[in-house]
Simulated scan of single mutants.
Amino acid sequence: MARQHAKTLWYDRPRYVFLEFCVEDSRDVKVVIEDHRVVFSCKNADGVEFYNEINLYGRVNSKDSQDKRSDRSITCFIRKWKEKVAWPRITKENIKPAWLSVDFDNWRDWEGDEEVERAMVEEYAELLQKVTDKGPAPTMDDLDDDL
């Protein structure tokens, strides 16, 4: 029986890139994270062999990366060598294999978040300033004394 590629999802964060190899009931799992590539292999409950090799977009810190197996998948937490640098793709080559997809459930465009947050804080401060600058107190000399 020939081996096949596992469906793989990925997403980017400021310090890490996450890879999820979607294989249920995996066994004989092997994950090798090197500075420039990830090699994954396993078998599922039916004995089907899976193998993925990804040449990574950028260099990673293989010593500070790890993987975790669950009943449904194997997730890799891969530490970027250069933090806070967005990866436009996971592969070194500008190709997209059919088995590799962006994990849109976890994807967040974090690049520029600090600027957006700073702008929101400034806007909030301006709003707060408008609320607290109420001007002079009313004179209240137009009120009736007959109450």
Rank of each mutant, 00 (worst) to 15 (best):
A2C: 01
R3F: 12
R3Y: 10
Q4L: 04
Q4M: 10
Q4F: 07
L9K: 05
L9S: 02
W10M: 09
R13E: 11
D25W: 02
D25R: 07
D25M: 05
D25S: 11
D28F: 03
D28C: 07
V29S: 03
V29F: 03
K30Y: 00
K30A: 00
V31C: 07
V31T: 05
V31Y: 01
I33M: 05
I33K: 02
E34Q: 15
E34G: 09
D35Y: 05
R37E: 09
V39Q: 07
V39A: 04
F40P: 02
C42T: 07
C42W: 02
D46F: 13
V48T: 07
V48G: 00
F50H: 05
F50S: 01
F50C: 02
F50W: 02
Y51T: 00
N52M: 08
E53H: 05
E53T: 03
I54S: 04
L56G: 04
L56C: 02
R59P: 00
V60R: 02
N61H: 06
K63Q: 15
D64A: 09
Q66K: 11
R69N: 11
S70K: 04
S70P: 04
S70M: 02
D71Q: 05
R72V: 13
R72M: 10
C76S: 08
F77V: 10
F77Y: 13
R79E: 07
W81T: 07
W81L: 10
V85C: 00
W87D: 10
W87L: 14
E93H: 08
N94C: 05
I95K: 11
I95F: 03
L100D: 07
S101G: 00
S101Y: 03
F104H: 13
D105W: 04
D105V: 07
R108Y: 04
D109H: 14
D109Q: 14
G112K: 02
D113S: 12
E114K: 15
E115A: 14
E115M: 13
V116Q: 06
V116L: 09
R118S: 06
R118K: 14
V121H: 14
E123N: 06
E123G: 01
A125W: 00
E126A: 11
E126P: 00
L127R: 13
Q129A: 15
Q129Y: 12
V131R: 15
V131T: 15
T132K: 15
A137Y: 15
P138N: 05
T139W: 09
L143H: 01
L143P: 02
L143K: 05
L143N: 01
D144A: 15
D144E: 15
D144P: 15
D145C: 13
D145H: 11
D146Y: 12
L147H: 14
